[in-house]
Design a protein around this nucleic acid. Structure first.
Lengths: 236, 236
DNA sequence: CCAAAAGTGTTGGTCGTACACCCATGC
DNA sequence: GCATGGGTGTACGACCAACACTTTTGG
């Protein structure tokens, strides 16, 4: 990505939207661009698709070289092909959505050479924004290329799928021992709205416990005040 | 697509999955490949993405040059990037899903120079297949490249979206005058199951008439025996 | 005991499903 | 009249939202 791109051909990039849930809010992993174009802007991590790799495996290996994480949930998000989305030339981007629990991401942010920043996603009904130490609007000039649009697409995909698929479980610190409260906070962060404790519990257990996808463990939550929570295990 | 492809770069193609509903069954538009690779096989229409066009506009103009149809519903389906999906070299395919009413497609099939064939999609619970004058299995050798996989992806997308979006309306011959029975047959074809007349009517009217998206017209259906049907108009 | 967090129960409304029934037209 | 297809009504169960209530821990 450092050299000039050949102008007579179309280049294919793979970009990752790595999402997590931290302190009850969605967050996206961004890296600060050191050089032009968009120097100083924040961007989704990505690179050009190698000739001998599929986008799937390219996304996987790119993820692995950024984070020491195995088996993170990943799905193709969308392919962005606007002619002028990259000032260097004709670059289309195959974007991938990656879900990572915050606890696994946390340790990687400081010890990486690459500058990484994690911003909270807040959804004001319509206008999503990234807020953190500084505020970044999805439509603003601080996000490189069309990455604001990519992030918005990813948020919508996640919000659409969390109610009828198991994507929410991939934000859990441990799928072998989680409380329903923990899962509920993930749902609330993604959907951006509070949910009723009792109804959430009932719908989750009806959907997953009866089908054998989650089951109670022997353990209970040790930490914190208040009544300890029963811990569950998730089996895909 | 006739010449050899440069081997040192990735080529980007745009392929169209043009779907319709005919005689109560889904059908996909295919064209017979005249030359190698996959000579004689059936393939989705497609071409290489021009340098100065987005995939969106490329899909639109490709569609227009194949069919004299304006304003057909179209959405990006998925991007297929397997390394060996095309024997000529590295070609990734951005697939688009296009919905066309059968009545508008019907006239185009005979008078085109390009050979076109329309096969019925039947869904045997799990294994989809294309059946027509001859039978084509989605996994079989009669479909070029990975187009069987693309078609399967499109069918699933359609089946998933028809119940909670308005994609089904785009199969209607005329959105200004359709009967609920006509719409129901579209739903049944896409989902591959029969539905209750009364319940279908109620759910559609509850979802769309109360929100003003469909409204009764003055006209009634003239043809056929049995009680004439009230015709509705769809407003997006 | 009190606060806090987990977990249970109840109730009213809506919605999906199955099915019985009525209406208008061609023959 | 009768077959054919359009259209209405109803009754039951499942599900969902709101909210009150009980249980178990730490301090």
């Amino acid at each position: 990505m450092h050299k000039t791109l050949a102008s007579a051909q179309i280049h294919v990039a793979v970009d990752l939207m790595i999402v997590t849930v931290r302190d009850g809010k969605m967050a996206v992993l961004l890296s600060r661009r050191p050089q032009a174009p968009c120097a100083g802007c924040w961007a989704l991590p990505g690179h050009l698709l190698p000739l001998e790799e599929s986008a799937e495996t390219a996304a996987e290996s790119l993820l692995r070289e950024m984070l020491p994480i195995d088996g993170a949930y990943r799905e193709q998000l969308f392919t962005f092909t606007d002619v002028s989305r990259d000032p260097r030339g004709r670059v289309i981007s195959i974007a991938y959505l990656v879900l990572v629990p915050w606890q696994r991401l946390e340790g990687c942010l400081t010890r990486e050479e690459v500058k990484l920043a994690c911003f909270t996603v807040c959804d004001d009904a319509k206008q999503s924004a990234l807020v953190g130490p500084e505020t970044i609007l999805l439509d603003g000039p601080q996000l490189a290329f069309d990455h604001g649009q990519i992030i918005r697409t990813g948020i919508r995909r996640l919000q659409g799928k969390i109610s009828y698929t198991d994507v929410g479980f991939h934000f859990l610190q441990s799928t072998d021992a989680f409380s329903l409260r923990e899962l509920q906070m993930i749902f609330e962060a993604v959907l951006g709205e509070e949910m009723d404790k009792s109804n959430f519990r009932r719908s989750i257990l009806a959907r997953y416990e009866t089908t054998g996808h989650i089951s109670q463990t022997e353990d209970i939550q040790k930490s914190g005040r208040g009544r300890p929570a029963v811990l569950y295990r998730y089996i895909p």
